[in-house]
Amino acid sequence: METRLPPLRLLTVFEIVLRTGGAQKAASELNVTQPAVSQALKALEDYVGTRLLDRSKRPATLTEAGRILQAGVSEGLGRIAEAFVQIRSLQNAAEQSVTVACSVGTATYWLMPRLADFYSEHQNIAVNVLTTAGAPEFQPGVDLVIRYGTGDWKDGLSVKLFDERVVPVCSPVVAERIEAEGGLSAATLLHVRSDDDSWLTWKDYLSLNGLPENRALGRYFTNYVQATQAALSGQGVLLGWESNAGDLVREGRLVVFGATAYHPKEAFFLVSPAVPQRRAAVRLLTEWIIGHGNGATTLS
């Protein structure tokens, strides 16, 4: 049978009286009069239907019923207090976390390598990176989006991070070999299949630069992470973009093959919601990404 509980206020007064050692000290902690505390205890006893304190003794002691209720109240209020601590921890964690959505390639080769510097400055902020196969979109829980395009999206405020530049890249060993064998026409080209027609393909690049179509064996991948890893392992020549190959070229792990570059009209942008975020963590990461994006060095 379900038992209706007394008002929480009465149980709280009971717990404070026992913890402080008397009605007078409890009244001081609660900032009420001593008679008010005594009335609350009497109301609780009336609700329970039996005495909780043996007032024939000085100081008053717990009855058997009082000891039973003390155990339950102490455990119950303790668990409630613990629950509030956990809730506040969740709130603090949410305040100190930021979620950024971007493509797998952008996350792997541009954002993640730079986050170490951010963490060194802001160790208490957690950055969650949500990767997408297609164009990243705002969804519940996403604070910022990094996109490739012209910056004219309607779902947020766009700030350009860096322009793109596209050049053939490959490992140093492959560059030496294909240079001796006749250049791009003899190279194995690494292709990325994409439904987004804004991404330059090898066919586009060769046509734009007046180069003959490559008849050599090509290898096809579903994303730029796979294709970039293939280039690093010496499997062929990739169309390198600043966003996925820029750092690798600067590190010497890939080299630019040939001097002909293509500059797309599209660029990379940081997009924030149209309604500004008030959380300090989001503001700090926004300013940091923009600062690092504006300082990006293009492929040469």
Rank of each mutant, 00 (worst) to 15 (best):
Q277D: 13
P276W: 06
Y220P: 01
K265W: 05
A261S: 12
V256Q: 12
S272E: 04
N214G: 05
P264E: 04
L206V: 10
E251W: 01
G234F: 00
G234C: 00
A227T: 03
V256S: 14
R219Y: 02
L217Y: 03
Y262V: 03
L200M: 15
A267M: 11
N214H: 08
L206T: 01
R253M: 12
K203T: 12
A274S: 15
A261D: 01
A227D: 08
H263L: 01
R279M: 13
E251S: 04
A231D: 10
T228G: 07
E266K: 02
T201M: 08
F221V: 01
S233N: 11
G240R: 05
A261H: 08
A259W: 10
W199M: 06
P264W: 11
R215G: 02
F268L: 12
G246V: 12
L248D: 13
P276F: 09
P212Q: 05
V271S: 09
V256Y: 12
L211H: 10
W199E: 14
P273E: 15
Q277M: 04
S272R: 09
A259L: 04
W241N: 13
S198Q: 05
D196F: 12
G218A: 05
F257V: 12
L208I: 03
S198D: 07
F257Y: 08
Q229H: 05
L217H: 02
F268A: 12
E266I: 07
R279A: 15
L217D: 01
Y205R: 08
L208K: 02
G210H: 14
A267K: 11
W241S: 06
A261V: 07
Q235I: 10
S233H: 07
D195A: 15
T222K: 06
L270G: 03
S198L: 14
L211Q: 10
L211F: 13
L217S: 01
G246W: 10
E266Y: 00
S243D: 08
F268K: 09
S194D: 07
D204T: 04
Y224P: 02
T201D: 12
Q226V: 02
A245F: 15
A230D: 00
L248R: 08
Q229P: 07
V275L: 13
N223Q: 13
E251T: 07
Y205N: 09
F268R: 08
S243G: 01
A267F: 06
V249M: 09
Y205H: 11
T228S: 14
R278G: 14
